[in-house]
Amino acid sequence: MSKFQRVQQWSSLARTWWLYDAQWQNPFQSAKKITRVLQGLHKPIYSPTMDVGDHVVVINSQDVALLGREWQMRVYFHHTGYPKTHYKGGARWIPAWELHSRDPTLVLWKACYNNLYGDIHRKGFMARLHVYPNSEVPDEILCNVSGQIRPVKPVPKKLEEYSPEERQTFPQLWDFPESYTQR
């Protein structure tokens, strides 16, 4: 193997670290994007028998957005370990909002976990996912990052983020009459 081929191989097999900002993003649509990268499906050298997946660092997972009444309706199951003979047994179903309040990284983490095929490789793929509830990421993780995954939806600006001039010059459909009372 020549010098050029050696570094070319090093370059193509090196693991890239990607940043994903989950601010106001649907976790289930995001998971589709993230798991693709975790498995290495975005690479031309991908092969199911090759371990070519990349790392993904997810920030702001506490601000994920679920649709409609999904926070109340979506239920996550876990088992405490108590047998059925115990009072009510050990099975627990908790709504998404409660899971999110216990650990704000888990909704996105579980979305990725459930989107992957449940075979022996899943643990390895999930080991390459690093989820953080806000934008505070340890330096030893953040220094590895060299790319960014585009979020599913563009993040809209809040009204208070617009300056008063921008609000004044915003095009109006009609002028309010003088007698109109604005609160």
Partner: peptide, 26 residues
């Protein structure tokens, strides 16, 4: 990429008069 890992990959470019004349990984 992966600066703090054992699989760190550096890409360096050689510039002459603000023009890229060659690049390589390592």
């Amino acid at each position: 990429s992966g600066l703090d890992t054992i699989m760190a990959c550096y890409h360096v470019g050689i510039y002459v008069d603000k023009e890229l004349i060659g690049q390589g990984p390592g």
